[in-house]
Nucleic acid binder design. Sequence first.
DNA 1: GATAATTATTTGAAGCCTAAAGCAACATCC
DNA 2: GGATGTTGCTTTAGGCTTCAAATAATTATC
Lengths: 165, 165
Amino acid sequence: MTILDSETKAVETPDDHGDELRLWLRLLTCTTMIESEIRSRLRERFEVTLPRFDLMAQLDKTPDGMTLSDVSKRMMVSNGNVTGLVERLVESGHVDRRTSSTDRRVQVIRLTRQGRAEFRKMAAEHERWIAEIFGDLGSKDVADLMKLLAKTKASAKKAVTARMA
Amino acid sequence: MTILDSETKAVETPDDHGDELRLWLRLLTCTTMIESEIRSRLRERFEVTLPRFDLMAQLDKTPDGMTLSDVSKRMMVSNGNVTGLVERLVESGHVDRRTSSTDRRVQVIRLTRQGRAEFRKMAAEHERWIAEIFGDLGSKDVADLMKLLAKTKASAKKAVTARMA
DNA sequence: GATAATTATTTGAAGCCTAAAGCAACATCC
DNA sequence: GGATGTTGCTTTAGGCTTCAAATAATTATC
């Protein structure tokens, strides 16, 4: 709802937040579209799900392994979620899980040799897919988007923190 | 990996797609953070989930009701998913479901009076939350982001279409 | 060293989501 | 008007996700 002020210039009412809402919907649509495309391709080409791929990506960065809690924090998902995810990856032979020798509560997980080899192949293709998907953006677009999203992220983080306080 | 060309200007190797990958991760992080904040608030304040809220938003726009297939298309989720979602909303009294009089295969769903009243309250707060979350962005930022995301969406859509062909 | 508090993980209940198979009702075509 | 195909929806099996409760092991406290 816009009104015209005395100088006949469009002015928004104090509590019109339609622009932000539209921005949010567009952001969501965009992300969802890309994410579902990535899911489809991972499934078609490698018969792997995105959560599994993400978990393997974390493990690929830490050859010495991680504890389940580490994974949970890094991926920002619940502990119980990681338990099940790891269970299935152990099942399929991609991940090795063993109890820590110094603390018997702790499970240390690593990629198996096969898991690492497969992941590397997937990651390489994945990177090409992303490049293709963002292909029509020039390098200035990419830089601008990075900046604006950084600002958005900071703004969102502030709102999250404010609510928690 | 960047190299320096004869004029000492940074140039990227042909197949370096790191920037796009970083952009994608930032986009994903940003969206996920906002989405999970919205989920939390909906749950805390109204004890409602995001999928339910989204479905009610669709129904609020069509007072004459929609068929399950309509909902499925609009929300871009599977038919089976909608069946379950609607089941729970009927259960909680927010949605009314009845078989079409002209085609006994078709289920027409609408918001109940109570469902509509509750949704309106939720939607108003939701809009304020979004405004708060994007609060640090100026109106130029918002406009720029809209434009860049439109471009991104178009680029992604092209990649999706190309794969399907 | 026993008790209490903390930490790491698992389990269970519930919801969300998909793909694929199945069922019922409608539409078409001869 | 009966066989064939299509459409709308539900069901099933499986995976992902959370929260909360339970277990087990370690650390801190006295």
